[in-house]
Simulated assay, not measured.
Amino acid sequence: MNEKQEHYLAEILPTQHEWVQELEEQAKSGRVPIMDRVGIHFVMQLIRMKKPDKILEVGTAIGYSALRMLEANPNASVITIEKDLQRYEQAIENINQLQKQDQIEVIHGDALEKLLELSNHDHQFDLIFIDAAKGQYSRFFELAEPMLNKNGIILSDNVLFRGYVAEPVNVPKRYTKMVEKLRDYNKMLMNHRKFTTSIIPIGDGVAVSYKISE
């Protein structure tokens, strides 16, 4: 999707609740990366259609996407993991202000460790959203996949990372390894025997992986 198309889609989105606008401004002023408006609108539409009861999120940031996913299905419960202490505390504050703490559990810690702990406690989810360290996506997927129910969905954000993944030329050196890992990750998704995957060129690229077998 080119910039003009993305701008057009963002322009025609419905007016957001005041709390949504406040969180977007909070993220912008704090330079905290959150999902763009068109991308989160797409994710919310999937949730409205799928109606997942239990959602796992890898990468809480300030709680924006967890709250938006809950907005799309108010009957859901969300477990979300955040490594950064400051963002974890921001997320807790934002979730408490909106009185959603009974439905959103925020876990502070390294996602690789916390995913193992959740798996050991036999947690199961209908939808898993991966939006954390891009170089670890394959490992996140490996740990999260056994906890996903059949016919569940794993969403992975930023899988096209600034266009570098699709066209890996003139990639800044600091992103070279990450881009390589994302290319490997996308290839793995497309060839996974348990999943069928589509990569949607919205925002920074969203992979939608549907679990077809155990």
Rank of each mutant, 00 (worst) to 15 (best):
L98N: 01
L98R: 02
L98F: 09
L98D: 01
L98M: 07
Q99E: 12
K100C: 14
K100T: 10
K100R: 07
Q101W: 09
Q101I: 13
Q101K: 06
D102M: 12
D102L: 14
D102S: 13
D102V: 11
Q103S: 13
Q103D: 13
Q103V: 08
I104R: 00
I104Y: 09
I104D: 11
E105M: 13
E105Q: 14
V106R: 00
V106D: 03
V106W: 02
I107Y: 04
I107E: 06
H108K: 00
H108E: 00
G109M: 01
G109F: 06
G109E: 00
G109T: 00
D110R: 09
D110P: 13
D110T: 05
D110M: 02
A111T: 02
A111N: 01
A111P: 02
L112E: 05
L112G: 14
E113P: 07
K114C: 10
K114G: 07
K114W: 08
K114A: 15
K114M: 12
K114F: 07
L115F: 06
L115G: 08
L115H: 03
L115A: 07
L115V: 04
L115D: 05
L116S: 10
E117L: 02
E117R: 00
L118Q: 02
L118G: 03
L118I: 01
S119L: 11
S119C: 07
S119I: 07
S119R: 03
N120D: 14
N120C: 12
N120Y: 10
H121W: 12
D122E: 15
D122G: 15
D122N: 13
D122R: 06
H123S: 12
H123C: 11
H123D: 09
Q124F: 11
Q124L: 06
Q124H: 09
Q124V: 08
Q124E: 14
F125D: 02
F125I: 03
F125G: 02
D126C: 13
L127N: 07
L127V: 05
L127F: 11
L127H: 03
L127T: 05
I128G: 06
I128E: 05
I128R: 00
F129I: 03
F129Q: 02
F129A: 08
F129G: 08
I130H: 06
I130E: 14
D131M: 04
D131N: 06
A132M: 02
A132I: 01
A132W: 01
A132V: 03
A132L: 04
A133H: 11
A133F: 13
A133L: 11
K134S: 11
K134L: 08
K134C: 12
G135R: 01
Q136M: 07
Q136F: 13
Q136S: 15
Y137G: 08
Y137W: 14
S138N: 08
S138W: 07
S138T: 14
S138H: 12
S138I: 09
R139M: 08
R139C: 12
R139W: 04
R139I: 04
